[in-house]
Amino acid sequence: MLELRLVQGSLLKKVLEAIKELVTDANFDCSATGFSLQAMDSSHVALVALLLRSEGFEHYRCDRNLSMGMNLNNVSKMLRCAGNDDIITLKADDGSDTVTFMFESPNQDKIADFEMKLMDIDSEHLGIPEAEYHAIVKMPSAEFARICKDLSSIGDTVVISVTKEGVKFSTRGDIGNANIVCRQNTTVDKPEEATIIEMQEPVSLTFALRYMNSFTKATPLSNTVTISLSSELPVVVEYKVADMGYIRFYLAPKIED
């Protein structure tokens, strides 16, 4: 028996909007730790890891570990029927081939049940080793989204370079090239407006902008984004999900041919 009650149901709506472009079908895993997902895009270039810790739910009952295969587009269709202020509860019986999404309006005057068919998905779970990153950039998520969008109108790839001068995003295309430098800036009114650069050593990596733009679908989840870079490793683009967890996007770099 599984029963997860999330008072801030809008978080789950935003999570689905953040990942459904990248991944078509995925297994949602429930355990005592929380509600999680790990999936790659169809070309195995990017990986998304979601964790919503059990403590973040108002009620969390998971009698035994459960893996539920879902088509994310269908989950999104279901969750779009929930109001932004609704409380969302996920329910599944042991051995059932369906999951039920229950939506409750804040004043309890409307309660809806949406039952969705589960699917069998063969998925490979990957071990993500703990890594020391050469550079970690924390910046406003809207700023990062703007940069990715702007650069993708010029080129297909972005070179992200971190030096003691700041973080530089560069692209080049048929019509010309573009460079955007963001310097560390902690003298802001609100902490979420700060750009903080922690650099152990300079690093420069090239990535496909198409994927970066897809990751920025998570922007409504968090005012800030953290970008962790090391040479020879996929970049990690992380958005916190309130105080209950995170979405981490891993993207393999472009490498010299």
């Binding site: 990986l47 779970h125 490793l233 996929p234 891993y250 393999a252």
Partner: peptide, 14 residues
């Protein structure tokens, strides 16, 4: 010239 890397060459199946 660059080519796209693959996640599976960085993270191993468990």
């Amino acid at each position: 010239d660059t080519k796209q890397g693959n996640i599976l060459s960085f993270f191993k199946k468990v």
